[in-house]
């Protein structure tokens, strides 16, 4: 019996070895380890054995079973691994083929610029205010120290709807409205972005509709050096830490003193080039100390309160920052233009 078992073991192990699929392996398992398998058959004949032989043979039979089962398991793992490998090999794809495109969109360049500027001033404690695009003559002009017949009204030729209603020529009326609402009771620190309109023929540098952001800070003890400090921070964050600013005198009816702010030209670093018309400086915005008449009209006592205001054109800033050569690109909405500015 011993020999019988050993022969069976040898035979079974050979069959396991020869098996090339899980199915064949399963057949081997059933054939040798099943209830009707030869090992079981051998054990059935155990009754004929002596008391001393029985445990020896029993042990041997279990050992053979164990060996065969182990061989099957290990062979099974090997076959499974090979089959998985085969499956994975078959599943291989060409990862260099293009991916499935998803529809992509993005903000308009002007929105990006406006939001960037908003965030920058929000960081300096400003709030964002908006107002109507169709304004009254009063808020657009008179409340800003531009009475009817003022020669400076020529500076901003206006689309009138009636004698008293017009397309706003700047977003300053929002400031006038806000101050009027607060009635001189507390400080105001705000910027107002929005669309504005002027009687201009559209060309590469003019647009009858464009964007403006104006800022206002009215409080006790506001100094012109504060204006310079705030604008310097704005310029450095917007155009780069190495930009310098300079103020030079200008005129706006609603500020006195009035200045224009230039930044040092990024292209030539102030040396002078064609971009800055050889001056080394590029005009960015207008600003000034709020005219006492404007404060008074809005209910602020100019003896007690002072303030500064500034105004800039995101269209122009976008053109400078991104080298856009024609303002009309912003309003034509050519998808090829818009998409260029969707990257962060």
């Amino acid at each position: 019996m011993k020999d019988q078992l050993q022969a069976l073991e040898k035979e079974a192990l050979q069959k396991v070895e020869d098996a090339s699929s899980l199915k064949e392996l399963q057949d081997v398992r059933v054939a040798y380890l099943g209830k009707k398998g030869p090992i079981t058959e051998v054990l059935k004949g155990m009754g004929k054995l002596s008391k001393e032989e029985r445990p020896v043979i029993g042990e041997l039979a279990n050992k053979v079973r164990g060996q065969v089962a182990e061989a099957i398991d290990s062979k099974k793992a090997g076959i499974e691994a090979a089959e998985l490998e085969k499956q994975l090999a078959e599943e291989t794809i060409d990862v260099t083929l293009p991916g499935r495109p998803i529809p992509t969109g993005g903000p308009h360049l002007l929105t990006s610029i406006v939001e960037e500027i908003e965030d920058l001033f929000i960081g300096m404690g400003f709030e964002v205010r908006e107002g109507p695009e169709v304004e009254t003559d009063y808020y657009n002009f008179e409340a800003l120290n531009l009475p009817k017949d003022h020669p400076a009204r020529d500076m901003q030729d206006t689309f009138y709807i009636t004698d008293e209603i017009l397309m706003r020529t700047h977003t300053s009326p929002v400031q006038a409205r806000t101050m009027n609402m607060i009635k001189g009771e507390r400080s105001v620190k705000m910027i107002c972005p929005g669309k504005v309109y002027r009687r201009d023929t559209d060309d590469a540098t003019h647009s009858h509709q464009f964007t403006q952001i104006e800022g206002l800070y009215v409080d006790k003890n506001v100094r012109m050096s504060d204006l310079k400090g705030v604008l310097d921070r704005f310029a450095k964050q917007m155009f780069g830490e190495d930009r310098e600013i300079r103020l030079r005198p200008s005129f706006f009816p609603f500020t006195e003193p009035s200045v224009e702010m230039d930044i040092s030209c990024k292209v030539c670093n102030g040396e002078g080039c064609s971009v800055c018309k050889r001056t080394g400086w590029i005009e960015i915005l207008g600003a000034g100390m709020v005219h006492p008449r404007v404060l008074k009209m809005a209910g602020y006592d100019p003896e007690e309160y002072s303030g500064f205001a500034f105004g800039m054109g995101p269209d122009r800033i976008a053109m400078l920052k991104y080298g856009v050569d024609d303002i009309r690109h912003f309003y034509t909405n050519d998808i090829r233009f818009l998409k260029q500015y969707h990257q962060a």
């Binding site: 003890n221 012109m224 050096s225 504060d226 705030v230 006195e256 003193p257």
Partner: peptide
């Protein structure tokens, strides 16, 4: 304005507003 411009805007210091600690925001 006359005094400021002849004095020179370049000579104005850079300061940040001292008052109005209101938080800005949307």
């Amino acid at each position: 304005e006359e005094v400021a411009r002849i004095y020179g805007y370049d000579n104005l210091p850079f300061t940040l507003p001292s008052g109005g600690s209101q938080a800005g925001g949307l």
